[in-house]
Structure formats: structure tokens, C-alpha cells
Design a protein around this nucleic acid. Structure first.
Length: 994
DNA sequence: CCTGCCCCATA
DNA sequence: GTATGGGGCAGGA
């Protein structure tokens, strides 16, 4: 189609900058200090800010990198207050106050400034600047050119895409698609849908009452767009929200029209005409001189070769301002021709006018292009730097402020964040640009005098932290780290609370849970095709391993700078995938906010009674010794009871007992179930072995090991929680694992009694009752189960009654036990084989139970079948809150593996939804306690239980609050169709509280 | 000294 | 039948 304007179209090499002049004026006026022309007091603050911005954009474009300068540029203004939007909705922008008096003369001056810099000044009656920007941006994008919108207006975010970026020149912040996800919770193409619902009080866009950004984003993520949502409004569970969506449907539609930018404005000035013209030095200098902007005048003169002395200050009419002398104003700077001819272009450039159509913007397209970029970019370490002086560090920090984000990594003396001493910090600001700041490296071994003197030349730790702290805590700088919880804890111990942040480990986990590990080395390999320097190669391993402070600075620097660089590159790949996969809400509501919560729990630690554990170890040792001689007596020889191999030889070889199960490797199993079977046949040795094993386990894993984890200073035990270790969304705990402290046996509970409260405090344990069965009842929509939970019945007895037709009253405990096993089996993706093993019955009998169960609860079978179908088709399943668990191998031909993965996929939404619920409770808990002025501290999480330390006199008030937060945790995102029940109790130790 | 295996503690 | 972490043993480096 011929270009009607005859102006050359843009090409892929072009870079168009569209400056949103109207919003800039207001923001500059309010943000910058008031500045007046020295000679007569003319207010020029906004003009000054505008000129500086324009100059910078002309010189550098978006970034200072060469080649980034604009080839096309325009400043766009609103023509008048009334536009077509006022016809749709007369109240639109009706709340706008009149501009302040000293701003009025600057409106005209800014247009003068634009012309003085030979930049096109665009405005059109009936349209807002935003519509013109949208139209130009889309046209340029279609031609394949790069577009940068210079504005701080969030309404323009709907335009962002792989080729369209945005810069807030007031804040120096560059926005990409990932920032749209951050702000609106959706991809750019869905921004208008969200705005239509949420409205905007500033522009007086009504939206739907009771729906804000968060809810709007969540609804749009679920339903896709406004119309679909409105057509399905009846399904919305929350009654108030449903009613509003129905009642205000038309208002939402109007809102959408208001926020939708017009992308087809008939342009007075064609796109091609916006080509950047050679700067007319004398003209610009004349204007700047008139404004008395001395610094900028000098700079522009230097750059253009204009002679400041020879150029006279321009004179022009200033509307809205009476000069003190009251004289008329003369125009002596020729006004720039708005329809000036486009700059000459070489024929070769204009010949490939039809640039490849990049197609409609999709989040996946950005994610894909970032992944491609990451794969192909070489990891070039020549841009790495070792920072040894404070001034240079300040420059890095200033750069981080300028960009608004920075990758950070700490190097320390220990993997244990509670013990780690800071050795150095690394930063990265763009791929290949990274630095390491050594702070506490010491001379290596090799001298007998103790060595360890600080290596000279390093910045003093305190000085460096003084410079880093404001940046690490600045709301305007996003800190990017891999497993930030570790760095957060280390820095917290140096008085720094890192915020805000992104965590590449959690980004990967959110998007790819189940597809593999989320550690940095693995992610680097997966996304960058690059194996980072292994820690082992830097610090050694095993006995010869040294702490990081003993690593020579040069080697440390290469390792540490690379870690920051890799982290930044991973962020660039992974962050856009959040939007592409519609997982931003999961990341922002279930993952990221939990990091500081868990960090504080780890920091507090739990108190254990060392004496009690020591006594227990002695007790267990005695019991073991007694059993050991009995066992050797019965066996007729001495052997290592702890060796399954030797034990098997004795039992199934020497003594000739009938072997039961075999292990994977073909050896006879000596597991409890086998030994119990033998014991049931009247053999004495196996039951002694089982008793010995129990004591051995309690001693080695708990009473012996736990004291070793007591922190030398805090005297408490600080576990470490992993947020990204499970496929389902559960946490895991290690070093020590405090999620498997014994509870089932009397002997085991003695360990639990050693977990005690501080003086004047109690331990409070609050646990969800049957949360997974309740989640299942909700998800699979099982009427009998829901009713039973509603009525507060014994769920296992109810199941037994339904299945076997026996009354709940005076039920045989064995019958209830069978039903209980089946209920658990269901959650685990039941198989006749497993149920048979659990209940010690035949597979046939177990199969009959399952059949009966499904007859009574057909909805459960339907749910299981639907889940299997879904996972086979999609390779993942979702929790109620949208978390994904991937099972990429589920279509394998290996029938055992396939069944296993199917069961895991059935279990994941149930286990995972329960995990999501307790996560939500934990995230809210601290605020709720603080609001009620309660000083309870959350210490531990054990999947469906939270443990707090509470001052004695606050126990009574804390219990109902904790219960409330936990029971309402799904809301408002989800209203479960079954009630949640939390049991809470306080006591002096964990055993009695549980 | 590292790794795989077995066994077992929890939800 | 689901999800973890960890100790001890045994075998190969």
C-alpha cells in the first residue's frame, strides 16, 4: 500500500523517541526545585528540567551506549482539555485542578524550547498526547523500528513490547515488559483490561467499585479479558464482587474505552517526518541564553560549535506572564516549521522500507528473545572489575541508582547465614559489566605466626557498607540476587535490610517447578549454556577447603563477579517469563514476600534444652547397649546391628528366616514392615532389632546431632528453610531439619520436650486440622465431605460409615482405621498395591475397597481422572492459587514410572494448595500481630503447623488472632467451599503444646 | 573422600 | 500410594 504522505517509512535501524511533553511539565514542576530567571523572576524550573532531558535524549537516546541515539524524535502535547473521551464520559479527568500560576507561562516556553532544539512539537485537536504517542509508536513498531517513550505515565504502559520501551526521565528508570507485570500484574496487552476494572482516581476513570489493581489483575489472569469476565460474572464466588461486576458492567466497558489509547489517529505530521534534524546551534543557544541556563548553554555551544558571545538571547512572546517592564515581546527566533521536510535519507535505507512485521506483541515473544539473547551472548569476563577504592564504589552505586536495578551477591566465610562473616560483595549492572568489592580478604596460610592479616588496599568494611546500605535499602533500586534469603540474613546481621528485591531462584521455581533444580550453576547451564567457575576450584574442597576470606583476591574476584553477572543475566531471562506464563501473581503473593518472613524466623531460632538432650543420649545409649547384648545372644554371634547387610545375613542366611521384600538392588529388605511381620510370627530377634533401631535413630539423628546446631552466641537452633526445594510448593527445612522432630512414639516425644520456650514465654502450636482432605473436598466438590466438614464430624468415621454402611456411633476402631488409610491413600493418588501394603491386606481386597470408595464418592474418581488427563496434555498441574507443578516425564512409556508420576500429579494440587494456604497465613501473620500490639514471634513451620514463642501474658490474646489469620488465609483470592479449622495450644514445650 | 543405598523421622 | 532431609554403611575413588 502506498504511503500517502510520501514520507519515507522507518526501518529496523531506526530509533524513535516520543517525549510525553504534557505530563513532563506537571511532573517536573512538582518534582524539581522552583527556579526563576535571574533577571526578572520568570518561573523556569520545569523548562530547565525539560531542556536538560531533551538534550540528554538527543545526545544519548535511552542509554549512553553508542548507536542508541534517536533517528526520529518528537515531543507530544495535549492540545486542549476536552477530547473525544469527554463525549463518552463527561466526568473524565474532571477532577483536574487548574494548573498553578507560575506554571502557566512555562507551557508556551516548553514548546519554544522544543523548537529551539529543532525537535518536532506535535499536538492535535481532540486527542490527548497519549493517543498520538500510541499511534506513532504502533506505526514505528510495525515498521520494525525501536521506540522509546519518555514518560512517567503508567497509562502508556499498555504500549510496551519487545521493541517499545519506556523511560521515566524524572526518575532515570527504564521500564520494560517485566515492570508492567510488576505494576499491573499482567502483560501489556492486558493492561487496559485491568485498568477498566480497577479504574483510576486521578483521571477519574470509574472502573468497578471494590476492585483495585490486585483483584483486577487476578481476575484478568483468570478470565483473559474484560468481556469474558463480565459474561461469566455469575461464577464469581465473592458475593459482593459478583454483584458489582454485574451491576457495573457497563461502567467497566466505558472505563475500558477511556483507558484504551487510540492507535489510529489521522496524523497531521506523518511518522517519517519526525526524523531528527541537525541541531541548529545558534538557535538553541539563543533560547538557552534567554532562559539564563548557563551550564546547558555552555554545553550546547561546545557541542555545536556555536559561539555564545556572538549569539544574542532570543526574544519571544510569553503567554501568561507580564514582564516587569510591561513591554511588548518580539519574536526574533524564527519559529521552527512544524511541517519541515524530513531529513535526507540514503536510498539504500529507504529501499527496504517494508520492514519485517514482528507480529503482535506476546509475552512469550519477549521471553523467547531474552532466552535467545542469553544463549548466544558470550560470557565475557573482560568487563569485570575489582573495586579497591571508595570513589569507584560510589560510582558503581550511582550507576545502580541511575538504572534502578542491580544484581548483588555476597561472599562470606560460611554457608550458614547465621555464622557467615562478610568477605566481599559483587555487583552487576548489565550483562558482562560486574565488579567485586573485596572487604575482608586475609593473607593465606603459610606462616606460623597465625597469619591472617588483612590484605592491604581493600576498602574498609564499614566504609563500604555505609556507601552500599542506602542503595541496598533504596525503594528505587531493585536488588537482584540468587537465593536472596541467604544474603538478606548476612546483611541483616550488618544492619542492612535489603529491599526491594527479585530472586532468580524463586523466579525459576515459580515458572519451572518440577523441571529441575533452581540452583545458580544449574540455571546458568540451562539458560546461558555456561558453567560458572565451581566454588571448589576457588576454595578447594574437603579437608583442604579454605574459607573465602583466604582466597586470593584475584581469583575471588573472577568467581564473585561472574556470580553477579550470571544472576543478572538469569534475571533478564526469567523475569519476562513470569508474565508469559501468567505466574506474576504467584511469584508476588506466594514466593517473594515469604523471603523476609522466613529469614526472620531463621534469625530468631528455637530454644532447645541441651542438658535434656544430653541426658536423653545417655538414656538411649543404655537402652541400645542392653538390646545389643540381647541381640548378639539371640543371634549367637557379634555383628554390626546398624549394617542392613550384616543383619540380612544373620536373619535370612544363618537363621534361615523367611525373607519378605527385596530392595532395589536385590538384597533382602530388613525394613520395619519386614521385621514386624517376622515378629508377629513369634520370632524374638526381629522385635529387638526394631527397638534398637528406634533408639539408634533417636540418638544419632536427634539427641546427638541437635546440640551441635546450637549457635554459640544466640544459644538457639537456627534451621534453614528452602523455598524452592519441592515440586509442590511445600517448604523444606535443613541443618537441622526441624520438620521431622519425632512425635509418634513416647520415646520420640522426649526429643520434642527438649524444644522449650524462653523464660516468661510459652510455645504456641497452631495446626490445620485435615487441611488436605478439606482442600480435596473443595477442589473435587464432594458434597458428603463438604457437609461433614461443615458439621464438624469425624471425617474418617464418616468415610467408613458411607463405605461400609455402619453407624458412626460405637464404630469398630479397625473399620475407622481402614477408612482413614483410604482417605490418606486418596490424597497420595491411591493404588491397590499401596493400600494393600499399608493395611496388610491382599491386593484384591484393597482393590475392592477402592472400588467401593469410588462408588460412594464418584466425584473423587472424576477429579483424579481429570487431573491425569490434564497432566498428560499439559505436562503440569495447578494448585487453587495458580502455582504450577511440572511433570515433564509423565508421558513416559515405562508403566511404573508413568503411574508414579500420575500419582504425584494427583497429589500435587492437594498438597500444594495446602502449602499455598499456610504460606499466605505466614506472610500476613507478622503484620497482624503487630497491628494488635502482640509480640509473639513465629519460629517454625511444619507444613500444616506454625509454632510461636509468646510472652506468658499474651497467650490468651494471641491464640484467637493466630487462628483467625490461618483460617482466613485463602481469602480474598479464594473462598473455599469448606471451612478451615485450626487447633492451637500453648505450653512450656513443643510436645505439650502440640 | 565422595556417592549411592538403605532406613526412618515428619506432614 | 505423596512430599521431604539426614545418619550410617559400604564400595569405589
Amino acid at each position: 500500500m502506498p504511503n500517502e504522505s510520501n514520507a519515507p517509512t522507518l526501518t529496523t535501524d531506526d530509533h524513535l523517541i516520543l517525549v510525553d511533553g504534557s505530563t513532563f511539565i506537571f511532573r517536573a514542576y512538582h518534582a524539581l526545585p522552583p527556579l526563576t530567571r535571574k533577571s526578572d523572576g520568570l518561573p523556569v524550573g520545569a523548562v530547565s528540567g525539560f531542556c536538560n532531558m531533551l538534550w540528554k535524549l538527543l545526545q544519548e537516546g535511552l542509554t549512553p551506549e553508542p548507536g542508541d541515539e534517536p533517528t526520529h524524535m518528537a515531543v507530544i502535547f495535549d492540545h486542549s482539555a476536552k477530547t473525544f473521551r469527554n463525549e463518552i464520559y463527561p466526568e473524565y479527568k474532571a477532577h483536574r485542578p487548574e494548573p498553578p500560576e507560575d506554571l502557566i507561562p512555562q507551557f508556551g516556553l516548553i514548546r519554544e524550547a522544543t523548537r529551539a532544539f529543532s525537535v518536532h512539537c506535535i499536538e492535535q485537536e481532540g486527542f490527548e498526547a497519549d493517543d498520538l504517542i500510541a499511534t506513532y509508536a504502533r506505526q514505528a513498531e510495525k515498521a520494525g523500528a525501536r521506540v522509546t517513550i519518555a514518560s512517567g505515565d503508567k497509562d502508556l504502559m499498555q504500549l510496551l513490547g519487545p521493541k517499545v520501551g519506556m523511560i521515566d526521565t524524572m526518575k532515570g528508570k527504564i521500564f520494560g515488559v517485566e515492570d508492567v507485570a510488576e505494576k499491573f500484574g499482567v502483560t501489556p496487552d492486558k493492561v487496559i483490561e485491568v485498568q477498566a476494572l480497577a479504574g483510576d482516581s486521578v483521571d477519574n476513570v470509574p472502573g468497578v467499585p471494590g476492585i483495585g489493581l490486585k483483584t483486577a489483575a487476578q481476575l484478568i489472569q483468570e478470565y483473559g479479558d474484560l468481556e469474558t469476565l463480565l459474561s461469566k460474572a455469575e461464577e464469581i464466588k465473592q458475593p459482593k464482587r459478583r454483584q458489582n461486576l454485574i451491576e457495573f458492567a457497563d461502567q467497566a466497558r466505558i472505563s475500558k474505552q477511556l483507558v484504551t489509547l487510540k492507535e489510529d489517529v489521522p496524523l497531521d505530521v506523518p511518522l517519517g517526518a519526525l526524523a531528527v534534524e541537525t541541531l541548529d546551534g545558534p538557535k538553541a543557544v539563543a533560547f538557552l541564553k534567554a532562559m539564563e541556563f548557563n551550564t546547558l548553554t555552555r554545553r550546547v555551544a561546545e557541542k555545536t560549535g556555536a559561539d555564545t558571545a556572538e549569539v544574542e538571547a532570543a526574544e519571544f512572546e510569553i503567554k501568561g506572564w507580564d514582564t516587569p517592564d510591561g513591554k511588548g515581546r518580539v519574536m526574533n527566533s524564527a519559529p521552527a516549521d512544524q511541517n519541515s521536510k524530513p531529513a535526507e535519507r540514503s536510498s539504500s535505507e529507504s529501499s527496504h522500507g517494508s520492514a519485517p512485521d514482528t507480529g503482535p506483541w506476546t509475552p512469550d515473544a519477549l521471553a523467547d528473545s531474552r532466552a535467545e539473547e542469553a544463549r548466544t551472548q558470550k560470557i565475557d569476563t573482560s568487563g569485570y572489575e575489582t573495586v579497591m577504592d571508595l570513589e569507584r564504589l560510589k560510582e558503581w552505586v550511582a550507576d545502580a541508582f541511575e538504572r534502578g536495578y542491580v544484581a548483588v551477591d555476597t561472599e562470606t566465610t560460611s554457608l550458614d547465614a547465621m555464622q557467615a562473616e562478610l568477605v566481599g560483595v559483587s555487583l552487576a549492572t548489565e550483562p558482562g559489566k560486574a565488579c567485586y568489592i573485596p572487604l575482608a580478604h586475609v593473607e593465606g596460610e603459610g606462616d606460623l605466626l597465625g597469619g591472617g592479616g588483612l590484605i592491604p588496599g581493600q576498602i574498609r568494611l564499614e566504609d563500604a557498607l555505609d556507601v552500599l546500605k542506602p542503595m541496598l535499602e533504596a525503594p528505587s533500586v531493585l536488588k537482584i540476587a540468587q537465593n536472596l534469603k541467604y544474603d538478606w540474613l548476612v546483611l541483616k546481621r550488618y544492619g542492612i535490610e535489603v529491599a526491594p528485591f527479585d530472586d532468580t531462584m524463586l523466579l525459576s521455581y515459580t515458572v519451572d517447578a518440577g523441571k529441575g533444580g533452581n540452583g545458580m550453576d544449574e540455571l546458568s547451564q540451562r539458560w546461558l549454556g555456561h558453567a560458572p567457575i565451581p566454588f571448589k576450584e576457588v576454595a578447594g574442597s574437603g579437608k583442604s577447603m579454605v574459607t573465602f576470606d583466604k582466597v586470593p583476591i584475584e581469583r575471588a574476584s573472577a568467581y564473585a563477579a561472574e556470580d553477579a553477572d550470571v544472576t543478572l543475566r538469569l534475571w533478564r531471562v526469567l523475569k519476562p517469563r513470569l508474565a508469559g506464563d501468567h505466574m506474576a501473581t504467584v511469584y508476588e503473593t506466594l514466593e517473594r514476600p515469604l523471603v523476609p518472613v522466613l529469614a526472620r524466623m531463621e534469625e530468631r531460632g528455637a530454644s532447645v534444652d541441651r542438658q535434656m538432650l544430653s541426658r536423653l543420649s545417655g538414656e538411649f545409649a543404655q537402652g541400645m547397649a542392653r538390646l545389643e547384648s540381647e541381640i548378639h545372644e539371640l543371634a549367637g554371634e557379634s555383628f554390626n546391628i546398624g549394617s542392613p547387610k550384616q543383619l540380612g545375613d544373620i536373619l535370612f542366611g544363618k537363621m534361615g528366616l523367611p525373607g519378605g521384600k527385596k530392595t532395589k538392588t536385590g538384597a533382602w529388605s530388613t525394613s520395619v514392615s519386614v521385621l514386624d511381620d517376622l515378629a508377629a510370627e513369634g520370632h524374638e530377634l526381629p522385635s529387638r532389632i526394631v527397638e534398637w533401631r528406634q533408639l539408634s535413630k533417636l540418638k544419632s539423628t536427634y539427641s546427638d546431632a541437635l546440640p551441635g546446631y546450637i549457635h554459640p552466641e544466640t544459644k538457639r537452633v537456627h534451621t534453614s528453610y528452602s523455598l524452592a526445594a519441592t515440586t509442590t510448593g511445600r517448604l523444606s527445612s535443613s541443618e537441622p531439619n526441624l520438620q521431622n522432630i519425632p512425635v509418634r512414639t513416647e520415646e520420640g516425644r522426649k526429643i520434642r520436650k527438649a524444644f522449650v520456650a524462653d523464660k516468661g514465654h510459652k510455645l504456641l502450636s497452631a495446626d490445620y486440622s485435615q487441611i488436605e482432605l478439606r482442600v480435596l473436598a473443595h477442589m473435587a466438590d464432594i458434597p458428603q465431605l463438604k457437609q461433614a466438614f461443615e458439621d464438624g464430624l469425624d471425617i474418617h468415621a464418616m468415610t467408613a460409615s458411607e463405605m461400609f454402611g455402619v453407624p458412626v456411633k460405637d464404630m469398630d476402631p479397625m473399620v475407622r482405621r481402614r477408612a482413614k488409610a483410604i482417605n490418606f491413600g486418596i490424597i497420595y493418588g491411591i493404588s491397590a498395591f499401596g493400600l494393600a501394603a499399608q493395611l496388610g491386606i491382599s491386593r484384591g481386597e484393597a482393590g475392592d475397597y477402592i472400588k467401593t470408595y469410588f462408588e460412594r464418592f464418584p466425584g473423587i474418581r472424576d477429579y483424579m481422572e481429570a487431573t491425569k488427563k490434564f497432566v498428560h496434555e499439559n505436562g503440569y498441574v495447578r494448585t487453587i492459587f495458580g502455582r504450577k507443578a511440572h511433570y515433564p516425564e509423565v508421558n513416559t512409556k515405562n508403566p511404573n514410572m508413568r503411574s508414579f508420576l500420575e500419582r504425584a500429579a494427583i497429589n500435587a494440587p492437594i498438597q500444594g494448595s495446602a502449602a499455598d494456604i499456610i504460606r499466605r497465613a505466614m506472610i500476613r501473620m507478622e503484620d497482624r500481630l503487630a497491628t494488635s500490639k502482640l509480640s509473639a514471634r513465629m519460629l517454625l513451620q511444619v507444613h500444616d503447623e506454625l509454632i510461636f514463642e509468646v510472652p506468658d501474658d499474651e497467650v490468651e490474646k494471641t491464640i484467637p488472632l493466630v487462628k483467625d489469620v490461618m483460617e482466613k488465609a485463602p481469602e480474598p483470592a479464594v473462598q473455599l467451599s469448606v471451612p478451615l479449622q485450626v487447633d492451637a495450644r500453648a505450653a512450656d514445650n513443643w510436645d505439650e503444646a502440640h
